[in-house]
């Protein structure tokens, strides 16, 4: 059974944001990119499942340009067997559904039985692509998983549900699982791993090879458009409460009650 891991590169989480002139996206010229932190949990889980003899191969999947190769190599250095990168001019301007179509087509073409993805990509913070992939592949899905076990085709998983509850769920492959913090502790690449990764293959595929027509992806197919991107409103200057701790605390309680009316 092949496990597919969806990996996206995102700006490092401490990046300062600069917005383009059209106010539709950020400028990326001097941004430092990293593997999306949640995708690291997905990759780690895949590697552990393979080590436990529950998968034959771990293959990473990325929609992106050649600039993503450094992150893909990092995944290979950590232990993924090979990588597929989907790159096509027709993908420019895709919304989440367009990206999901490209990923689902590639995952299906490789015969992947279990897809592990991140809970969300921390650029758009959408958390939508894994469930879209599941629908397009006709697979089961579990979102935001922090515990996963597999026995043959059957799996159990745990996730935080609403109202401070946790759910234990059971299902069967094929499935798409989105991975949350707490699932595992991702490994780093080792020097031997980095050397080994040099001979591993990143296959670059276009959408025609995946049997996708150009009008299913890209800006023309996008159902969702972004505009008017700007910084969040400035919070009004706060107030430091003076005096000794007891005085400050008494004043705080008064303000919370009478001014802010939150208690």
């Amino acid at each position: 059974m092949i496990i597919g891991v969806c990996i996206k590169q995102v700006p490092a989480t401490d990046t300062r944001i600069r917005i383009n002139a059209e106010a539709t996206a950020i400028l990326t010229d001097d941004v430092k990119f990293e593997i999306n932190p949640y995708d690291e949990y997905a990759l780690e889980e895949a590697l552990r499942l393979k080590q436990a003899g529950k998968a034959t191969e771990v293959v990473t999947f990325t929609v992106g340009g050649a600039d993503a190769d450094a992150r893909i190599r990092d995944g290979l250095a950590r232990g993924a067997d090979r990588a597929v990168r989907i790159d096509d001019p027709a993908l420019a301007g895709s919304d989440s559904l367009g990206l999901a179509r490209a990923l689902a087509a590639a995952l299906t073409a490789e015969g992947v039985g279990l897809v592990l993805a991140g809970r969300q990509a921390v650029d758009g913070d959408s958390s939508t692509i894994p469930a879209m992939i599941a629908e397009l592949m006709g697979a089961a899905q579990v979102s935001w998983v922090d515990k996963f076990e597999m026995d043959g085709e059957a799996f159990t998983a745990q996730r935080a549900a609403g109202g401070g509850m946790r759910e234990v769920v059971a299902g069967r492959l094929p499935a798409v699982v989105s991975c949350d913090k707490g699932l595992n502790t991702p490994r780093y690449a080792t020097l031997p791993g980095i050397l080994k990764a040099k001979s591993k293959k990143i296959a670059v595929v276009g959408i025609a090879e995946l049997g996708l027509s150009a009008n299913r992806v890209g800006a023309g197919a996008a159902l969702v458009t972004f505009s008017n991107m700007g910084p969040p409103p400035q919070r009004p200057a706060g107030r430091i409460l003076s005096g000794d701790n007891a005085t400050a605390v008494a004043e705080l309680v008064r303000l919370l009650r009478d001014e802010a009316k939150v208690i």
């Binding site: 989480t13 990046t15 300062r16 944001i17 921390v122 913070d125 159902l223 991107m229």
Partner: peptide, 18 residues
């Protein structure tokens, strides 16, 4: 809709065309 992206470092209008 208007929503935060990049961990709230920016806000953006989202229009749906379907």
């Amino acid at each position: 809709g208007r929503r935060p992206v990049y961990a709230g470092k920016a806000l953006v209008d989202v229009t749906i065309n379907s």
